[in-house]
Write a protein that binds this DNA or RNA. Structure first.
Length: 419
RNA sequence: GAGCCCGUAGCUCAGUCGGUUAGAGCGCCAGGUUGUGGCCCUGGAGGCCGUGGGUUCAAUUCCCAUCGGGCUCCCCA
């Protein structure tokens, strides 16, 4: 604190050894569930071309206008990725994954970066997992995407949440609706919030998402997109709703749900939790049937979601859910004297070769200190080795939780470990 | 981009109406138990009281600035 020190950049944290087991448990769970759904993992670079993110996410979005970390090397402009849908689609196009036939079912886990003011549940480097189904316009793809998302929270035991669902329409429906919405709001332009006034010209649907008090009366009376969906989009949305209901996934229809990225079409959804405080979105996603083409690929329908891992862990914390079991150290070899330490060094190796975890003192401490350490590390057993034991080749195996001891040769005691 | 709150030991936090060597609990180390952990007892290490400046005989305390952290608005994971 006093001396010159270095620390993590604003809004970024170290994940210390106390925390890493929780992260690994969560990651493992995601890998397992993805395997059950037959999704394949994709890993892409942390940096992406600025232009990709601008085109993909949208020039006017908050993410692009004020939240990206951008820098330049030579003539090339890069950003730290703020989300992964556009990069995954870039990869899909770049590597011609469409030529592999069928639908690409991809999932990812990794860090994202947004240059916002940090607060609870919001960091500048945060982690998301998510998936992208590229190449299907069928409602089944939407339903499976949501089902996967819900499965993760179900498995962890988080139940206190709301799934909000909406359709933001296909381009034709949306253009029609935007016009209707503009016509409705234009007469009240001067009464709207400043932000909403600019959005009225550029992206009127985002006004529905506004939380400014002065906007609320108009939002409540505004026409609803459901009434302007064309037959295809209405049918698609209906099938998604019915499919979710058939799977026992409950949801709320929210005609005001408009997500922050420009690429969404038709299905949009968001999962929020009252256990998170102000930043209450656990996960969100939707369909993006135009993005692949926008980024340079063939017209290809797709749907996906992303979930915040820090927020998931906050929810676990609030609910008292533990993702980890106690760590397991099988044997701590307590060594008394130099000769015993040499013996210990070769025998931790033998234990590990047999598949047990084993550790010993590295700094020549007293027996008491070694026992304390074994206790702190929650060792199941200590193996006690001193001069007598070496002479007789008879060692003491102490069961730490039961405070019982047995003696025998090293081989006999290893055999005891198995029971 | 805007608002509010907070910086004292590894952690959580007392304290000083300005006045000798700045405290507690937990944690860490050691001893009590010359070869046995957790419980208990005793002792120890560990602080430029975030940083810089000002006021003062004297500042960890008061004032200003600055840096760092937290929460909130906006928006999102």
């Amino acid at each position: 604190m006093a001396k010159p020190t270095y620390s993590t950049p604003l809004g970024m944290v170290d994940i210390l050894p106390d925390e890493t087991p929780i992260w690994r448990a969560l990651e493992q769970m995601i890998h397992e569930e993805a395997a059950k759904f037959n999704f394949q993992e994709i890993r892409t670079p942390i940096l992406e071309p600025t232009e990709l993110i601008k085109r993909g996410v949208g020039q006017l979005t908050d993410i692009v206008t004020k939240e990206i970390f951008a820098f330049q090397k030579g003539d090339t402009h890069y950003v730290l990725r703020p989300e992964l849908t556009a990069p995954v689609v870039r990869s899909y196009v770049q590597h011609h994954l469409d030529q592999r036939g069928g639908v690409q079912k991809l999932y990812y886990i990794g860090p994202m970066f947004r240059a916002e003011r940090p607060q609870k549940g919001r960091q500048r480097q945060f982690h998301q997992f998510g998936l992208e189904v590229i190449g299907s316009a069928d409602p089944i793809a939407d339903i499976e995407t949501i089902a996967f998302m819900m499965r993760i929270y179900e498995r962890i035991g988080i139940k206190n949440f709301t799934l909000k669902l909406n359709s933001v329409g296909d381009p034709e429906s949306r253009e029609r609706y935007k016009q209707v919405l503009r016509d409705f709001l234009e007469p009240h332009r001067s009464e709207l919030s400043e932000l909403s006034q600019t959005r009225l010209d550029k992206n009127p649907m985002r006004i529905l998402d506004s939380k400014e008090p002065e906007d609320q009366p108009f939002i409540e009376q505004a026409p609803v997109i459901q009434d302007y969906l064309n037959e295809d989009s209405a049918l698609h949305f209906d099938q998604v709703c019915k499919g979710l209901t058939a799977l026992g996934i409950s949801f709320e229809l929210d005609p005001y749900l408009v997500r922050g990225m420009d690429y969404y079409t038709r299905t949009a959804f968001e999962l929020s939790s009252p256990d998170l405080g102000s930043q209450d979105a656990l996960a969100g996603g939707g369909r993006y049937d135009l993005l692949v083409e926008e980024i340079g690929g063939n017209p290809t329908p797709a749907v996906g979601f992303a979930a915040g891992m820090e927020r998931l862990l906050i929810a676990c914390d609030e609910l008292g859910i533990s993702l980890t079991q106690d760590n397991t150290l099988d044997v701590y070899i307590v060594c008394l004297g130099d000769e015993a330490r040499h013996w210990g060094l070769s025998h931790v190796a033998k234990l590990r070769a047999k598949g047990y975890s084993a550790s010993m003192d590295y700094i020549g401490r007293s027996m008491k200190a070694q026992m304390k350490e074994a206790n702190r590390e929650q060792a199941k057993y200590t193996l006690i080795v001193g001069e007598q034991e070496l002479e007789n080749q008879v060692f003491v195996l102490r069961n730490m939780s039961e405070s019982t001891e047995e003696s025998g040769s090293f081989e006999e005691l290893i055999h005891k470990l198995q029971s």
